[in-house]
Nucleic acid binder design. Structure first.
Length: 726
DNA sequence: CGATAATAGCTGTAGACAGCATGTC
DNA sequence: CTACAGCTATTATCG
């Protein structure tokens, strides 16, 4: 189908033509002919990079231009929200306004009412629904990206509930990877179904075993026995490779060992560029390995890296500077980062049940990464058989069908929060109504026997009543209690809220960081770290040493909670180090964690600390305890000792600057107000901009001369992400 | 007997969403 | 529960 022929607003066609697109891909055309443009629901199950985004853009913009209202675009990752936001921003020339919202920024819900296209993570949208923002009724279309995540154990229930809420209230466009039961999904959503395997870049799949590369069409290529020759070969041909492995350690090892072999193939300018990249990295144990790999044009990519490093690697790979990335599943879903050749080294993964085969769905998503639309005619995806039988791998992953999607609504921890929200935020008045709502879900659609779910729902309702989240009157009507309502809005697991509530009496008597951090670490919302065998004794000693600071009893070693208790102690100790200003590099060394891990637990602890304070406010809080908790929260946020609390409250003053000011003799707000500009500028990390901010904060004008140079400073720095991060 | 090499045994394992109110180095 | 890399403790080997 030609773009000209599209039955949509002329302005849309013009913009698409300006992008240089004149002809739609076959699945795109099929999708747009299915009735979505007339308002029908649609499930679109096609491979990544075959143009799902363009379809959703056309549907969204066309609908908004014709009918007004709002479109919500749901994504599974915060990074993806950013990416989509940037893509959709282009449509603002038509007068539409685009916003992105995740837990990271801009949560003031009413503010979102001014926008037409809203990109959000599923959880964020769920939270917005719970807050009952007035603009929700204007949502005319929901696009759910990567809707197969409905089958994910820990996050599937949320997505399923959102769709159940919106079903019938808004048009639904569900974008999915190829799954075993797309028909079922479409039937549930009362939607048309378009399934296709068409790709803009042809995909060639194969299995590699001991030097022989068996292609799906029966052809065989010969290589050196070691599988890494596949990556080297790709680079020799001027292409890039993406290697998937199943542990962080493997990712790092393979990157470092490939680096010298790839280095020989680099041009001089490339070597210079890579060296520059490596030199720009901050120094820490993980980055040292990364630098080594980078100098050979290779990088590893996993969740232990901090945001900065990850984006740097992604960008440099897209530019072609980095030739090979070795990655854990961080890269398998989500960001669009294709490569000519995808090599899958591992098809097994460690889980709670030991070693399990990675689902076909996931392997096929990894394979789908092969082939760069602008550069390659064909992409190659190769699975490495190291110990496994190559024929088995071929049957399972190359010719096999992906798994069916199963509802994960019955997963207890997710279900608990969802039921609470139905009662406290969505006006469900009694058990009958609760079941009525659940009948709209995929779970009910999929299973003939729903007695298990009903029984589970009943159990959860009892739990909620018993712990005073909700109550029930004599006519068996639910009553939402403030504790329940707040828990639901804070978006924490009711079990977390219960743990907090139970601890308040002890906490009030003996507020202290260690006890509070252990409490936070013990909640199901806090992903803890693992205490290693060798460390166990140390943490147990620490726990006994600090016994009177804890709000729980130390379990005996036979207790099933023993290991998790030590994990909590380890997490608490790290948080304690953080607020005592232990340098980050020492934290990485001491606890054997990566920068990304530290960032993650700090982020979680910050959120839970806030929630703890909010809940405490509901139970006749003591003023001094509340103040104590707020100070501790601030210390956690900034990673500072008590003595820096005052400074850290000032604008643009964080951990490092506060410490520098304090050590330079500026210990209070008053010290700074009295200081001369030049004295402040002499402090490390304090520039004109910061000083200006401080003076503005105090309501004092900066002398003219310095103001001018501040203006110049600003000019030099403009052209960043601008209003997006405002 | 002591130093060094080979081997048996043990350990640990991916990822990432949510609140709120504004400004990290 | 079907793995496997990297490390440590233990045993074998050699002079």
């Amino acid at each position: 189908m030609r773009v000209e022929e599209l039955p949509v607003d002329e302005r849309i066609k013009r913009i698409i033509l300006e992008r240089g697109i004149e002809e739609l891909y076959p699945p795109q055309a099929e999708a747009l002919r299915s009735g979505v443009l007339e308002g029908k629901n649609l499930v679109l199950a096609i491979p990544t990079a075959s143009g799902k985004t363009l379809v959703s853009e056309i549907v969204m913009v066309n609908k908004l231009l014709r009918e007004g209202g709002k479109a919500v675009y749901l994504v599974p990752l915060k990074a993806l929200a950013e990416e989509k936001y940037r893509e959709f921003k282009e449509w603002e020339v038509l007068g539409l306004r685009v916003a992105a919202t995740t837990g990271d920024y801009d949560s003031t819900d009413e503010w979102l009412g001014r926008y037409d296209i809203i990109v959000a993570t599923a959880e964020k949208f769920d939270s917005l629904l719970r807050h009952g923002s007035s603009w929700i009724k204007d949502v005319k279309l929901v696009v759910a990206d990567e809707v197969h995540l409905i089958g994910s154990y820990d996050r599937g229930a949320t997505l399923e509930m959102i769709l159940s809420h919106m079903l019938g209230r808004a048009q639904i466009l569900a974008l999915s990877a190829t799954v075993g039961n797309a028909e079922e999904l479409a039937e549930w959503l009362n939607a048309e179904l378009v399934v296709s395997n068409w790709r803009p870049v042809q995909l060639r799949k194969g299995v590699f075993a001991q030097g022989e590369l068996f292609w799906e069409d029966g052809k065989i290529d010969r290589y050196p026995a070691n599988w890494d020759s596949l990556a080297i070969d790709a680079v020799k041909r001027g292409k890039q490779a993406l290697i998937f492995v199943n542990t962080r350690r493997s990712a790092e090892k393979e990157a470092v060992s490939l680096a010298p072999k790839i280095a020989r193939l680099l041009t001089k300018p490339e070597q210079r560029g890579l060296k520059e990249l490596a030199d720009s990295l901050e120094s820490n144990p993980t980055n040292e390995k990364l630098k080594k790999a980078l100098r050979g044009g290779v990088a590893f990519h996993h969740a232990g890296l901090s945001r900065t490093e990850r984006t740097m690697i992604e960008d440099a790979f897209r530019e072609g500077l980095i030739k090979v990335i070795t990655a854990t599943p961080t890269l398998s879903a989500g960001l669009n980062l294709p490569a000519f050749r995808v090599i899958i080294r591992d098809t097994k993964r460690y889980s709670n049940f030991g070693w399990v085969d990675i689902p076909v769905l996931e392997i096929q998503q990894m394979m789908g990464r092969a082939g760069r639309p602008k550069y390659d005619k064909v992409g190659e995806a190769i699975i490495v058989a190291r110990t496994e039988d190559p024929k088995k791998l071929m049957d399972r992953y190359v010719f096999g069908k992906p798994e069916k999607l199963f509802s994960m609504l019955a997963n207890e921890s997710a279900f608990r929060g969802q039921i609470l929200a139905l009662i406290t935020n969505f006006g469900v008045e009694n058990f009958r109504e609760l079941i009525n709502f659940l009948e709209k879900t995929f779970y009910f659609y999929q299973r003939s026997d729903t007695s298990h779910l009903e029984w589970k729902a009943k159990e959860i309702v009892y739990f909620l009543i018993e712990n005073e989240f909700i109550d029930m009157d004599i006519e068996d009507r639910f009553i939402a209690l403030p504790f329940g309502r707040r828990t639901s809005q804070l978006y924490i697991d009711p079990l977390t809220a219960k743990k907090f509530k139970d601890a308040f009496p002890k906490l009030e008597k003996n507020p202290n960081p260690f006890g509070i951090f252990q409490l936070i670490a013990s909640t199901p919302d806090m992903g803890t770290l693992n205490a290693r065998r060798k460390e166990m004794e140390d943490y147990l000693d620490l726990a006994y040493e600090m016994e009177e600071k804890l709000y729980v009893n130390i379990p005996y070693w036979e207790d099933y909670r023993f290991q998790s208790f030590l994990n909590e102690v380890k997490t608490a100790k790290i948080l304690l180090d953080w607020i005592n200003e232990v340098p980050e590099t020492r934290i990485y060394d001491t606890y054997n964690i990566d920068p990304g891990d530290l960032y993650r637990i700090l982020e979680l602890a910050d959120w839970l600390m806030y929630s703890l304070i909010e809940l405490y406010k509901l139970f006749e809080p003591k003023k001094d305890v509340l103040d104590y908790l707020r100070d501790l929260h601030l210390r956690l946020k900034h990673g500072v000792r008590e003595e820096l609390l005052e400074l850290v409250r000032l604008p643009n003053i964080g951990r490092k600057r506060a410490r520098a000011l304090y050590n330079a003799g500026f210990r209070t707000t008053e010290d700074i107000m009295r200081a001369k500009v030049s004295e402040l500028l002499a402090v490390e990390g304090i520039g004109l901009k910061v000083v200006e901010g401080l003076f503005m904060h105090f309501g004092v004008e900066l002398p003219k001369a310095s103001k001018k140079s501040t203006e110049e400073n600003r000019k030099r720095r403009k052209g960043t992400l601008d209003d997006f991060l405002k």
